[in-house]
Design a protein around this nucleic acid. Structure first.
Lengths: 334, 334
DNA sequence: TTGAAAGCGCTAACAA
DNA sequence: TTGTTAGCGCTTTCAA
């Protein structure tokens, strides 16, 4: 059972100050005698000592903790980001604390309150709703916050995100170049700003007059789930009585649901179907189709989020309000 | 900028006790006058108030926080467990804090220290190494700890895990029943106790004298990665010059690596190959092969882990040291 | 080179 | 029904 500073001071006969100084490695700065230092270190080696973070946080109003709030840590993208961010935080002596909201704004607000109450030094947040105002401040003033991945226009604050608009443009172009003249984008709701940006990117290609002969469809569902994807695909087949030549998917869940629908209706996936997705998956290796994948750079996203947050925590102002991280476009077969 | 209890007391003219009682909803128990209650509540509605968890933890030596330590939150199994456990914790007013170790015992020890320093009330831990002794105690005595998923024999403590041994037996039997008379189990290192249990389950079937005509192979790699799986499969093909009729996979990564190896060597996956896995994946829907999958019950695992931990935190002693959670065996095609 | 003491915000025993 | 007060463990200023 580790001792407290008070106990160590008492047992070694030195004062709390001296013990604190030794423990925090400031012995040299304050010219603690080697004798005192040795005695205290020996005592600790024998009996142990453990920080009481609560006491430290209370005193210093700093906790060396960063909070991460994501919609769903079960989502591979967020899981990878969390892992990368955690590593980065550890490097700098921070502890990362992660919470999932399940896209529930009430839980999100709760989580934010909770983090503030626990005195986290900063927050990385993938918001499930527009912020009417920035997170309520703690005693220290405003809680440094980086918005991540999603970007509500006019929301203010600092944002780190992939360039969803540009990715969608590029992905659409590639699928067209691969020969599709009839292309549908199956995705979740545009109330998710990431989805909205992608739809806009898709539509910016649509608007190109040189594409006059091409057919474009945007199909969005309120449910970014397998069921949602299944429904979207079923509806499409009901309405058009055939598959488009190119199919874009906003998420893996939608992708799976849609594929299931196609198998149900057509028996199998036509190998000529050109597929584009915004989420990577091993499944792609098992498809014989030509596939284009937008790959987000999770570690770079984590790096930028950390860097921006670190600036905020140092009371510096990042140059740009929105930092875009580039994506890769990967091509399978074809 | 929310106020502190002291400020509220000062501004409303009541004492800290009264304010605390109102804030903590104990006004009725202690018969605070409706007038005082109303005044304080009005003040808070206007100016806001936020717990200072650090101060509370310091005073109460309780933090309403539970720590979860997993090898890799990017692993879908752990991600699902984390999500379920988080929901469960929230229900009971606890906050769940998750850390990944990347299977590094040094990081694991650090994380444990950290959690203790932060005064978590309990820990759910998937250990990456046998515990020579249980986690060092905090001031409160021993830190309540539940070992999760992995189970080092003779380690002591309380464990919640799927019945890996029985699952492996069942999975092997099913693959045999499906017609395989030559079956290989490709897996990570048996230094992982989960893997060890599965190998033992597999071998317990091997040992059955009625299986005298059947060929069994256990192939394990130190790397539970795609590369590892690729290497295992390549080696097998090099040694035996053919595929077995049944193939069991210890993890998704191994599965992917092995599949890649098969495609490289044979051009495609023979549809007659009978597959068994210990990890679920959507990929299975895209394979034409007969597949058996052991499905762990993540929410039940989370529930049991929480329940056991709650008992420990209440200083009760769970009846059993190892709690096994049943798995499902799911069958695709065939 | 070392020590005394105040105080971070909160709770709860005790007093009034 | 409400107030006073001590103290959780730590850091840090100031004094010795």
């Amino acid at each position: 059972m580790p001792k407290t500073i008070k106990e160590i001071a008492h047992d070694t006969g030195y004062s709390r100050t001296t013990v604190t100084l030794v423990i925090n490695g400031k012995a040299d700065n304050y010219r603690i005698s080697p004798k005192a230092k040795a005695a205290i270190e020996a005592y600790i080696a024998k009996h142990g000592y453990r920080y009481n973070q609560a006491a430290r946080s209370l005193k210093l109003a700093r906790s060396h903790t960063i909070g991460l709030i994501v919609p769903d840590i079960g989502n591979a993208f967020f899981a990878r980001v969390a892992a990368a961010l955690e590593r980065r935080c550890r490097q700098e002596g921070f502890v990362l604390v992660t919470t999932s909201t399940g896209e529930d704004p009430a839980i999100e607000r709760l989580a934010l309150e909770n983090f503030a109450a626990r005195g986290v030094d900063g927050v990385v947040l993938t918001p499930s709703e527009p912020r009417r105002r920035l997170p309520a401040g703690s005693r220290k003033g405003e809680l440094p916050t980086v918005q991540f991945d999603r970007y509500y226009e006019g929301d203010g604050g600092f944002v780190v995100t992939s360039h969803h608009f540009a990715s969608a443009e590029l992905l659409t172009e590639r699928v067209l170049e691969a020969g599709a003249t009839d292309i549908a984008f199956l995705t979740g709701s545009p109330s998710n700003p990431t989805t909205l940006q992608r739809i806009k990117g898709f539509e910016s290609i649509t608007a190109d007059h040189r594409r006059a002969r091409t057919m474009f469809h945007v199909c969005s569902s309120d449910m970014d789930t397998e069921e949602g994807g299944h429904g979207l695909m079923m509806d499409f087949l009901d309405n058009h009585h055939r598959l488009p030549q190119g199919l874009l998917f906003g998420s893996l869940l939608i992708f799976h649901g849609a594929m299931r629908a196609i198998r149900t209706r057509l028996g199998s996936i036509p190998t000529t179907l050109i597929v584009g997705t915004f989420a990577e998956s091993n499944i792609i290796e098992y498809l014989p189709n030509p596939v284009f994948v937008v790959r987000q750079n999770e570690s770079e996203l984590a790096e930028q989020a950390f860097r921006t947050l670190a600036q905020l925590m140092r009371k510096e102002t990042p140059e740009e309000h929105v930092h875009f991280v580039a994506t890769d476009l990967v091509q399978y077969r074809l």
